[in-house]
Design a protein around this nucleic acid. Structure first.
Length: 316
DNA sequence: GCCTAGCAAGCGTTTACTTCA
DNA sequence: TCTGAAGTAAACGCTTGCTAG
């Protein structure tokens, strides 16, 4: 292309411009009047995209304004000039049909417009560039709008998520409080009934066996379990308790440990909730520990009850 | 079949000119 | 009348695809 570009410069350029100027006809001439006729059928058999210049334009503008406009295009040789309005319209129509320019179509267009084929080619090139720029602007606007919409949706979802999190937190707290109150009451009842119904010479092992049947041991945390375990194991007075508590604590492995301090609202947290509902709530164990550790009798493995009081009738 | 030079065409960028507020 | 912005024709340099040798 560089060769063609260079070939079109200088004297050649001047010659072409002079020739074009001479060839150009005013819009109110007979020829141009015919050019303003409405187009319907392409007259270029070689190209289906071709729009005949003779039928290209739909308006006949033979006014003084148009004439002046056209005269405005006349110029000194060598100076760049604009194409006539009707020429541009004709080129536009052809561009709408097909924005690429085959050689024969280019020749035909140039012939009909009285331009150099190269001028037609350049016009199409520039027109494609303008079209591309416009298209880019359009795409940019569309993307911008789309982004705005998505961002708005995202922000709304974030707000909704926050609201739901808070709701879940509230409900959790309520549930924990409720369960806590319930368990306190159960333990109190158990203590009362065990005091009333305790056998005179209870066998300690039996109580431990009862304890080992506690189904909700698995919900205790490792640290709770180990502390309870150590409290019990530290007692040299009751080796059989140690054995029993060992088996009692073993199920509390990490896979069953609940992590209430998890702050992230996730499926795991949902699972935790379900687990908490199906098992005894975690506050239960600390309660046991409270009974277990606070009482001087705890070291003997009696869980804070006197041996004679340990029937645990409320256990199955 | 592979390589190379020449050519034409297209594209992006820049320049020069025109038009208009 | 001057001026700056916008529009546009054309130039320029580069790349790509095709073809002949």
């Amino acid at each position: 292309m560089a060769s063609t570009g260079k070939a079109y410069t200088g004297a050649h350029n001047m010659t072409v411009l002079l020739q074009q100027q001479n060839e150009r006809l005013p819009p109110n001439s007979e020829v141009l009047n015919s050019l303003w006729l409405p187009s319907s059928s392409p007259s270029f058999p070689g190209s289906k995209a071709m729009v005949s210049f003779e039928n290209a334009t739909s308006k006949v503008e033979t006014t003084e304004e148009n004439e002046e406009e056209y005269e405005g295009c006349s110029h000194q040789p060598g100076k760049k000039r604009r194409l006539a309005v009707n020429q541009v319209q004709f080129l536009e129509k052809n561009f709408e049909q097909e924005n690429k320019l085959e050689p024969e179509r280019k020749t035909q267009l140039a012939k009909e417009l009285g331009l150099e084929p190269r001028q037609v080619a350049i016009w199409f090139q520039n027109r494609r560039a303008r079209y591309k720029t416009k298209q880019l602007e359009k795409d940019y606007d569309a993307l911008k709008a789309s982004y705005g919409s998505l961002k708005s949706d995202h922000d709304n979802l974030l707000k909704e998520n926050e609201t739901l999190k808070n709701e879940v937190k509230c409900l959790k707290e309520k549930l924990i409080e409720k369960e806590k109150g319930k368990e306190d009451m159960e333990i109190e009842n158990a203590i009362c009934s065990s005091i009333e119904e305790a056998p005179q010479n209870p066998i300690v092992k039996t109580d431990c066996e009862a304890l080992s049947n506690v189904p909700n041991v698995v919900v205790c945390k490792v640290e709770d379990a180990s502390s309870a375990k150590s409290d019990v194991l530290d007692s040299d007075d009751s080796p059989h308790y140690a054995e029993n508590f060992s088996s009692f604590l073993e199920p509390a492995d990490s896979s069953h440990v609940l992590e209430p301090e998890q702050s992230d609202f996730s499926q795991d947290e949902d699972d935790d909730l379900i687990l908490r509902k199906s098992f005894l709530p975690s506050p239960f164990l600390p309660k046991l520990e409270a009974y277990c550790c606070d009482d001087p009798c705890a070291s003997s493995g009696c869980f804070g009850f006197h041996v004679e009081d340990q029937s645990f009738n409320f256990w199955p």
